[in-house]
Amino acid sequence: MELFIASIRLVVASILICVVGYATVIWGVGQVINPEAAAGSLITRPDGTVVGSRLIAQKFTQPKYFWPRPSAVDYNGAGAGGSNKSPTSTDLTDRAREIVAQYGATAENPLPPELAAASGGGLDPHISEEAALYQAPRIATARSLSQSQVETLVKDNAFAPGGFLTPGRLVNVLELNLALDQVGTAQ
């Protein structure tokens, strides 16, 4: 019986310290150091409406925007997930075939691989610099910009995620599209 009493005492103590105390401290750290990220890195317009989160991919289908990687959950920010298909699965082949047709990729101008492969959470906000440049001609046409204007924008927005530890550079699709809209309105 005293084993049960001691256990209950420790249940209470550990919940108070490791849940209430710990979570409150970390919440406080977030409020002091990084309140914007602590709330989910949301991007808001001047009028206060939320456009999205810079960490969460959103769906783009219009030709004038850069398109993100495919999503097995259709960019559902409240129900993320991957395809969980084996890389040998014909389901992936069928999905990739549609995407290839969408981009009009050919053997001479092959599609960058991540544009055909869904991410683990279906919400990967990035594509590679190459995958963005690959889409530049379409966007330039849709927006009546020169291709070099779009390419410059891509290069200005590209970053190396792990510095010298990672090869290649990435762009954030939502931020890049916001920058694109800025250029559009400037003209």
Binding site: N84, K85, T90, D91, A96, A105, T106, S119, D124, P161
Partner: peptide, 26 residues
């Protein structure tokens, strides 16, 4: 090894299998 499902399609096969992976981690 690249994603086997893409073998017959015009997709670049240089960085290995990306299905289920995030780009930001390398």
């Amino acid at each position: 090894a690249p994603t086997q499902a893409f073998a017959q399609l015009p997709i670049e096969q240089t960085v290995g299998n990306l299905e289920g992976k995030e780009l930001r981690f390398g």
